Amino acid sequence: MSQADSDADFVHSLARGLAVIRAFGADTPQLSMSDVAKRTGLSRAVVRRFLHTLVELGYVGVDGRLYSLRPRILELGYAFLSSMPIWDVIQPALRDVSSRLRATCAAGMLDGIEVVHVARAGRTETVAVSFGVGARLPAFHTAMGRVLLSALPPDERAARLSQADLPAYTPFTLTDPARLMAELETVAAQGWALVDRELEPGLIALGVPLRNRSGQVVAALVTSARATRLDADTMRTEHLPALIETCERLTPALHLQG
């Protein structure tokens, strides 16, 4: 029996409905009822009722046998962003950094073993991975993720590492758990993370923590670019000071958010 099964306050129908929504993604924008049932582990009868409800509410559209998310689904994410006014402060800062460095700049938060991009500005690089708002990426293999993971207590880092898959995305990807834990220690000590071609062959990124006025890490700011355009030394000498300065400028406005 799972903890949810023994929790009288846990709403299973809500959990199943959210699972149906999460079945859709960049690689599966359209799904049949059977597809959703397979991806969620729910019966076709249950999936049919949830899809019908989501269609009636305007969150899902249907074309023949295929279902897809509708723009109204963005209301759910916007409710989160609009409830956190720090993003109103961060977005102009991202645009400023992106303009000065001529690179993509993003902010994100940690969610389990993934990072979620919640704000973004700048040029669109030709890369395979998505960095748009709402994009979810593996925390252990991104600069943003390593910054946020390094802010956790060591035992919490180890617990999350034990839950993570560690595929070799490129020949440069760190996949050894001991090396990853050592890398997080380094990031915690130096206060920034540089990930060079680990997630995608041509991508380099640098991240720093964004702290609120109480010193808590509430997010991470990153810049990223094609490795053919910028190298690690340039990221450290030009991008790192700009990101640190931006975070220091933002901190007074963050009060006790986090």
Rank of each mutant, 00 (worst) to 15 (best):
D63I: 12
L18R: 09
C105Q: 01
G77V: 00
C247Q: 09
A232F: 04
G207S: 01
T186S: 09
A121I: 01
F80L: 14
D9P: 00
Y59H: 04
A4C: 07
E238V: 13
A164W: 00
S130K: 11
D96E: 10
V115F: 02
L254A: 05
P177I: 00
S43L: 02
L110I: 06
A37Y: 06
W192R: 13
D111L: 02
A219E: 02
T40G: 00
D111W: 05
A159T: 03
A93E: 10
V89A: 14
L203D: 08
V129W: 15
V20E: 09
A232I: 07
L57W: 13
A15R: 05
H239G: 09
Q257E: 15
A227P: 08
I204K: 03
V208S: 03
M33D: 10
S68H: 14
Y78D: 14
L203R: 08
R44D: 08
L76D: 09
I244M: 12
D233I: 15
M33F: 04
I21Y: 09
F131R: 10
L184E: 01
L166P: 10
V133P: 02
D196C: 05
A219P: 06
R39T: 06
S43E: 03
P252H: 11
R226L: 15
T126C: 13
R72H: 02
R22A: 12
